[in-house]
Amino acid sequence: MNVPRPALLLGLAGLIPFLWGAMTVLLPDLALWTAQTVGGRFAGPYVMLFYGAIILSFMSGVLWGFATRLEGAQAATGYALSVIPALWAFFMTGGGPTGAGMSLMAGFAGLLGLDWLFWRYDAAPPWWMALRVPMTAVVLACLGIGVFL
């Protein structure tokens, strides 16, 4: 299934902070330059953690929109499930960069399950999983670099 070009391009652009964060973990000189130029919050795991919490919250809104396409008990369940990523980001990302990174990894893996559920019930576009699976893989890889390296 072909992903519409605007959705693909904007989705790929949304990966930039994760990729940048991973690169600054792998390249200490780039991390130093980033910290000195735009601030430490934009280097290493910190940019990935901050941005990851924002994206989980954003994705709650996307799922909420999908829930509007459901009816009855499915809609009620969809609305309830749609708030989980934002609540997860809020409650689970404290306690330091390693714990927060691992929590975000779990959050994004869980989000992929919710993506699949909404897609399975035809609330998400037919191309949704073709976009979300590779994007989630990149996010998890980047967060993994921040957590494990």
Rank of each mutant, 00 (worst) to 15 (best):
M1I: 07
M1T: 12
N2K: 12
V3E: 00
P4V: 07
A7P: 05
L10W: 13
L10D: 04
G14T: 11
L15C: 12
L15S: 14
L15Y: 15
I16V: 14
F18N: 01
L19I: 15
M23C: 10
M23A: 15
V25W: 02
V25C: 13
L26T: 12
L26H: 13
L27S: 14
D29Y: 04
W33D: 02
W33A: 06
T34S: 04
T34Y: 00
G40M: 11
R41K: 13
P45L: 09
P45F: 04
Y46A: 06
V47D: 00
G52Y: 11
A53L: 10
A53P: 07
I54W: 14
I55D: 01
S57D: 02
F58E: 01
S60Y: 04
L63F: 02
W64E: 00
G65H: 09
T68N: 09
R69S: 09
R69T: 07
R69K: 14
E71R: 12
G72F: 05
G72L: 05
G72D: 13
A73R: 15
Q74L: 15
Q74M: 14
A75N: 09
A76M: 10
G78F: 01
Y79K: 10
L81A: 12
V83R: 00
W88K: 08
W88G: 03
A89D: 11
F90G: 10
F91V: 11
T93Q: 15
G99R: 14
G99Q: 12
M102L: 15
S103V: 08
L104M: 10
L104E: 10
M105W: 11
G107L: 09
L111P: 07
G113E: 07
L114W: 00
W116A: 14
W116D: 09
L117G: 03
L117V: 02
F118M: 00
F118Y: 13
R120Q: 10
R120S: 05
A123L: 09
A123H: 07
A124S: 13
A124N: 11
P125Q: 04
P125M: 04
P126W: 11
W127D: 09
W128F: 12
M129N: 06
L131M: 13
V133N: 03
P134D: 08
T136E: 10
T136H: 13
V139C: 04
A141T: 12
C142S: 03
L143I: 05
L143M: 03
V147M: 05
V147W: 06
F148I: 05
L149G: 08
L149R: 01
L149E: 02
